[in-house]
Every structure is written in C-alpha cells, then in structure tokens.
Design a protein around this nucleic acid. Structure first.
Lengths: 358, 358
DNA sequence: CGGTGCCTTGCAAACGAGTGCATGCTCAGG
DNA sequence: CCTGAGCATGCACTCGTTTGCAAGGCACCG
C-alpha cells in the first residue's frame, strides 16, 4: 500500500539543487497564529487592520515576522488587479539624458512600494507600441513616458482608454494628460539673450526632429527670441535625429552657405556633432563659432571646450513625473496638470564674442 | 425584486472614467470557440499544443486573435510560480558604465519574453539587501548582479539558497556562480606595456575600492605588469570610491610625494578626477603626466584631452550575462561558467612620452 | 432579563490560468 | 461485431490573496 500525500500538497520534487525552503504563505501564518486566513490578511493589511482586534493584529504580525512572511504580490495582484508596478518608456537608456530621469522616477516610486519596468523604444513607433502592449499585459498600474512623439496615435489611444499616464520631457499634441518638462522656451530665450549680449547677430539654430515636441518647441522659441531682438530668424536646419551624426551633418549644411557666428543646438548631442563638423573644417569653437547645447547632460562640462548649455533638472523631472502619477493612481488628482520646471543657462567655454569684423 | 447579476460576474462599478474595456479572459476565448477553458489553454500554449487536435488549435487561435486575447501573466505566474521576470541590481544607473550593460541585458531577455526589473544599490549593502528582497518578493526568476562586493554575504546567501543568478562586471570571492566581465588583467597589462613603450618608468596606480573585485583585480594586475617590466610596483593609492572626487583626492596624495610621470587609473571616473587635480595644480596632461582610464565610457573620447582607456564591451557584457542566465533558467546549464570578454587599449591624447629628463 | 447592535472573526467565492485524471470517442485488429 | 488502444477533450482542483456576507459573542439599554 502506498502512502498518499495529504491532499492539496504535492510531494516536493526530488531536490537536485539545495532545496529552496518554500516561502510561508498567508495560510501558514494564519494557522500558526490560530486564526483564519481572512483574519490574517486583514491584520497584515494596513487599510483593513482596523477591522481586527488589536491583540489579534499583534499576534498575527508577530507570527508573520517570526516566519519571515512576505505577501505574494502575484497572488495579490491577481485578486486586486493592481500590480504596484509602473511602466517607463524611454527612447534609449544609453542616451545620458535619461538615466537621471529614470532614477528620479525609481527612487520616488520605490518609496510608495512601486516597482518600475523600463523599456526602450529607440524612437520607433512600432517598438513603442509593442513594448507598451507588453507592459500593459503585465498589468502595470500606469505609465511614465519619455518617448512621446508630437503626433502619437499610441498616446492618444492609451489616454482615451483611460490608462493612467504621465509624459515627461516630451509632449504630445492635443493630449489632455499630465506632463512635466523643463521650461524649454525660456531656456532658448536665455540662450539667445546670452549670444546677443556677446555681440552675435548671425545666429543659427539646429533644431531637433520636429516630430518630437522638444524639437518643435525649441524651434518656435528660437524664432520668437531672434525676432524680439530684431534679428534674422530663418537660419535654421532641422536635424534628422538627436544624435551626434545628425548634428555634424546639420552644421556642415549650414557652413556651405555663409557661416553663422553662433549656433544654438537643439540639444547637447547635436552640439557635440557640431564640434565634430568644426574640427573637420579646421574651424575653432569658440573663436570662429560659438556653440550652445541644451539639457546639460552629465559630463558635458568636460568636453573640449566645455559646452555652454541649458541645465534641465533631470532627476527632478523624474521625481515630479512620478509624483503626478502617484497622485493619479491614488485617485486624489484626476485633472491633468502640466508642470514646467525652471531651467538655467550655464555659460562655459564654448561661447565667446564673435570674431572681430563680424 | 432586484435583478441579480449572473453568479461569478460582479456588476461593473459606475465608470467615472472612460470605461476600460475588460480584457478578454481565457474563459471568453474558450466560450467563443466552443471549447473548455482547459482545451483553450492547451491550444494556446506552445508546449501543450500537441495534445490538441490541429483543427481545434486553429479555431482557438483564430478566436483568440479576433478577441485580442492576451494571457494574463499574473494569473499564469501564480499557477506556474515563474514570473518571466528577472531582477537587475546595479550600483547606480547614473554611472555611464551601466546603461549599456543594462540595455544589453534588456534586449537579450526581451527576445525570450522576459522583462527586467532594475534597482540601484548605491553601493550600500543595506540597500542592496532590501532591493534584493523586494525583487525576490516579486518572484523574479533570477538575478543579474552588477553590484557585487568582493566579500558579499548577500551573494553567498542567495547562491546557497539556489537562487539563479549571474554576476556581471564585478565578482565575489569564493562564489561558485556564473560571471561575465572584461578581461581586466590583460587590459591593465596592455596599459602598462603602452606606457613603458612610451618611455615611462615611474608609473603610479590609483586603485578602485578593494572591496570591489575590479579594484582588487586591477591592482594585482598592475603590480604583476610592473614587476614583469622590472619597475617599482608600489606607487599605489587606493581610492575610496569609483568617483571623480576620489580620483582627484588620490592624485593629490600622489603628487605630495614625487610626482609620477604616468598614472593608471582604476576606471574612467577616477581618471577624470585626475584631470581635476592636475588642473588645480597647474599641471598638464599629457605634457607633465600621462593618464589612462578603464572602461572607455561613452563620451570619454571627447574629454580634454581625449582619454586613453581600455575599452570594455559593455553592451556585450550585458548580452552575455543575460544568455548565461537564460541557460540557467531553462535548465540547460547548471554548472557555473566564468566568461571573460576581450578588451582593447584605445590610445588617445592623454598619454605621451614623459617630460624630457625623466 | 431579553432584545438590539456593534465588534470580531470565519466562510466561501472569487481573480485567471495550468494540469492530473477521467471520460468519451474513433478506429483498428481479431 | 466486439474489444482495446489511443487520441481529444472535459472536469475539477489548485496557486495565494482579498473581500462581501454571515454568524457568533458580548455589552448595553430598555
């Protein structure tokens, strides 16, 4: 006659590796504390604790601690259909702009017990959609999106379906969701002011891709700023991407006509590309041409020459985005908010008065 | 008389937001296809598909596609106690060394349907332990750890409990788990060779923290290399951290005695700190002192002067670590493997022959 | 002294999917 | 024509929690 294992517990498979001691379950805690699992659940749960007699709460908690009990978030999620997890969509983690933002997000969400799932879109709408779907399948409670396009069907669709989300750094047109970014317009205005005060009058702009809000906003701000100084506002090249190569190409284009005395680059990567183009052509920054970047990426101050740039509080961007999402998830706030964080122009060695005679 | 909803389906709560259409469940698919949920499950599942008649499989799959069915990974995880999720522990995502590694990991794991949860330890064992616990509670199937210490009880404990894990970049002593890193020893040897061939004889080393394997390994390699050239191998300062500030302090210390003609820094951040110290003292690199870094971080070639450094294939490190973990998780490989990826010395402007007369 | 109501706890039904076992069917072989 | 093998499918239970409902106990009040 064979001995049958007690119903409900399968015999442990032959342990090939050092047996992982099975984690205690809520039932184990309940049994050990002499209560029903339901009671244990309530005692352990912050919100429902008041339903249980204090003495019982104490007993259950002690037992739980003694057994090293931890809730199984999977089981909980299945029941509550919330995962305490949020998805973060980033164009490319390898772009130095984003790690500080992501850390701001992670640090803030971690304090509220949330965990972050990140995915890279590489600026490809298809990859964005597929990653978005994967994260949704994983039941994330909400999204923080740093990869939005100006015209982004995916974002509209998600917003319409009521998916809790917050955009960071990049906005989408006609979309009524919360968003946090640096004050790009002011940053560009300060930049132009700075160059003009140095004596520059022939200033060009290398715009980021206009499919991205930062590209479009900074371009518009550039035009407005130049206009307000009574200067030509049409020396503009639109870069194909926020990359060094695109920045180089753009400046090469500009130099084919008459060279400007200063260039406002759409971001730091484009500015670095400008450095490359100048070096190729045997020109010097800032002696021949002044260059200004945007974002003040980590280590950008250590370039040759140190890049004048607009400092965007990247970490705080992440923190604020996370806060907005938490507000939304807790149901406190429903109405979308747009937060613009202040930026500051950091003047370094890449800007100087124009060559004499210009 | 009140109408009772059919058992098992609660009435939808009054929708305040645009109602999110409830995702179809396996049961919905089964009903629509006219089969039992169990059959639908088997039809949809790669491994069990062969149990179902091909015609039925086709019908179920069609219906599933039409309904836009996606498995609920939460429910599946609860049943299978695997989450298709892995935890990645990193010292600090903001350190430019790590984003490429993380991307390598994410890209590789994504191909196998895994999702990544990252956490930052800030080199704090306590934070490491707490994050490790959080990720374990989330039922991650395994870990990839870039934050291991040379003497790391947490790693030992986890390994003993049989937690599937792979170390990347940093190793732990006496630990029998898979690990992938750059070939540090060879990298340092090439560095010393290069400096010696330039004519340097008085070469110092700024070691990273000896609590981390890279610090210890590179130090040992430095000693060995110097010894093999018949040179003094005791001009060494150990930095407190892999940071710019620590690098600066270390070089200041060195300069208080007789200045070496070249410095091998434990990594690029320490090398950048050396630049700071030189600037403070009015010294020039490479004219007065040559500096070499390690890792070849992104953008490090654009410093002033461009830093000679040892290129470590960071992305591939991540890819390889992910592969090793996948092998382990699939049960194909059980025996730990140590993979050292080849590194190359990239010579740039920060190294030159020593000042004449030295 | 009985009734009423709260406070505390237990019961049981979910959440969505996977899986051992039983069952029913088809088909082949005797 | 009957039996047995084997394939296809269904049944029912389970994973670990949460939660609406019910029931028990106690105290208080009339």
């Amino acid at each position: 006659m064979t001995v049958r294992p007690p119903a409900g517990r399968l015999p442990a498979p032959a342990p090939t590796l050092p047996a992982v001691p099975p984690r205690p379950t809520l039932r184990d805690v309940a049994t050990a504390a002499g209560v029903h699992p339901a009671t244990a659940s309530r005692a352990l749960n912050e919100a429902t604790r008041s339903l249980v007699r204090p003495a019982t709460v104490a007993r259950v908690r002690e037992v739980a601690a003694a057994l090293g009990y931890q809730v199984n978030p999977i089981a909980r999620s299945l029941k509550t259909s919330r995962s305490e997890t949020v998805g973060v969509l980033v164009p490319d983690l390898t772009n130095p702009l984003f790690p500080p933002i992501v850390r701001g997000i992670e640090d803030t969400l971690a304090d509220s017990g949330y965990t972050v799932l990140t995915a890279n879109t590489d600026n490809d709408p298809e990859r964005a959609a597929s990653n978005f779907a994967v994260l949704q399948a994983r039941q994330v409670d909400g999204f923080i999106i740093a990869s939005a396009l100006l015209d982004d069907p995916l974002m509209h669709e998600a917003a319409e379906r009521g998916v809790p989300m917050v955009l960071v750094n990049r906005a989408t047109e006609h979309l009524d969701v919360s968003m946090v970014a640096g004050d790009d317009a002011t940053g560009i205005a300060r930049t132009v002011d700075h160059l003009v005060s140095l004596g520059h009058r022939d200033i060009a702009h290398i715009a980021g891709p206009l499919s991205v809000s930062t590209g479009a906003v900074r371009l518009r701000a550039f035009r407005a700023a130049m206009h307000s100084h009574g200067l030509r506002d049409d020396r503009i090249v639109v870069a194909e991407a926020y990359s060094e190569a695109a920045g180089r190409d753009a400046l090469v284009d500009l130099l084919e006509e008459e060279a400007p005395t200063a260039v406002v680059a759409g971001n730091d990567l484009l500015a670095i590309g400008c450095y490359d183009a100048l070096e190729e052509q045997g020109l010097s920054c800032p002696d021949d041409i002044s260059i200004v970047g945007f974002n003040d990426m980590p280590f950008i101050s250590r370039l040759r020459p140190p890049l004048t740039s607009v400092r965007v509080p990247q970490y705080e961007l992440g923190v604020e985005a996370a806060r907005l999402l938490l507000d939304r998830l807790s149901g406190r706030t429903v109405t979308p908010r747009v937060v613009l964080l202040p930026v500051t122009l950091v003047v370094r060695g890449s800007t100087a008065p124009p060559p004499s005679g210009r």
